[in-house]
Amino acid sequence: MSPAPTAALTRPREVERLVAGQPTSDGAGVRLQRVLTQDLQRRLDPFLMLDHFGSENPDDYVAGFPDHPHRGFETVTYMLHGRIRHRDSAGHEGLVSDGGVQWMTAGRGVIHSELPEQREGRMAGFQLWLNLPAKDKLCPPAYQDVQGPDVPTFEHQGATVRVIAGQSHGVAGAVQRPVTEPLYLDVHLPAGGVFEQPLPATHNAFVYVYEGALAWSNGCRVPAGRMAVLANTAGSDGVRLQAGDAPTRALLVAGQPLGEPIAQYGPFVMNTEAELVQAVRDFQAGRLA
């Protein structure tokens, strides 16, 4: 796919801070790195969490994520390697493998599972949580999967860019959202390669490097396994990613902040404590979809 020409950036964003992932386990014992944690939710609004999982040891992933509830946000599972099946209480089911995306809108509530369909080999990918605006938190649950070959991809000055959500250089992503306007790119750069992405100054943004390293013009280096929170500088017009001396792969994620209160209790994300209490009661009473 050929991208539309885009003017060069004049004031790209700098790195505000670097964040290291925290080793943890979730589901039935899946080992992962939690990169975007609860203490960054307001700074990176509308994003609530980012997990990076990856292992060739089946003991680290084979039990997967059995049935568990969600309410009030969206989950985005992006697979780099391996096969994972989604099932939920609203009747949705899907299987994706290398390069595929599962996008679930929990809305008013759903119970779902994400289970590997492999017992050997490498399993690797990411799960991103995207908040829903207050007006949509009790919307009907929804689900879509996008197989790897169907994720829009383009080449630009040596970079290969997969557009999971939003739009880049005139290429529309697999998913669009009108309120939070998420941009979710998987950018592959050759050694020394550069990719520029226009971005509104109002959007919160971060970059997560999962292979290689990125270098900024001010000397900041972002190695693999680190998230760079990008500064919201007045007048900034986008993000410039430049690889170091090795091929580099990174996620670029940005979105329009909601500016609403965030109240979270485990798998429920609402706006008030009272709404959380109601979510737990509805779950206990079997009133989720």
Rank of each mutant, 00 (worst) to 15 (best):
G64C: 04
L80Q: 10
D59F: 04
S55H: 11
H81R: 15
E74P: 13
G82S: 02
D67G: 01
T75G: 06
F73P: 02
H81N: 14
D60S: 11
T75K: 09
P66K: 00
D60E: 14
N57W: 05
D67R: 04
F65T: 00
M79E: 11
D67K: 12
R83E: 07
E56Y: 08
M79V: 13
M79D: 06
H70E: 07
D59I: 00
D59R: 15
V62R: 15
F53Y: 14
G82I: 03
P69N: 09
G64P: 03
M79I: 06
R71Y: 07
F65W: 03
E74D: 11
S55N: 14
P69W: 00
H68E: 01
F53T: 08
D67T: 08
P66W: 01
Y78C: 11
E74V: 11
N57M: 12
F65I: 02
A63N: 15
R71V: 10
H81W: 07
D59Q: 15
Y78E: 14
G82R: 06
G82V: 01
E74N: 11
F73G: 03
S55I: 10
D59E: 15
D60H: 13
S55V: 11
F73R: 02
T75D: 01
D60R: 05
D60A: 11
P69A: 02
G64L: 04
F73D: 03
P58Q: 06
A63C: 07
T77Q: 05
L80V: 14
T77A: 11
N57H: 15
D60P: 07
F73V: 01
R83T: 08
Y78V: 12
R83F: 03
D60G: 11
H68G: 03
G82N: 01
H70R: 12
H70V: 02
H68V: 02
Y61N: 00
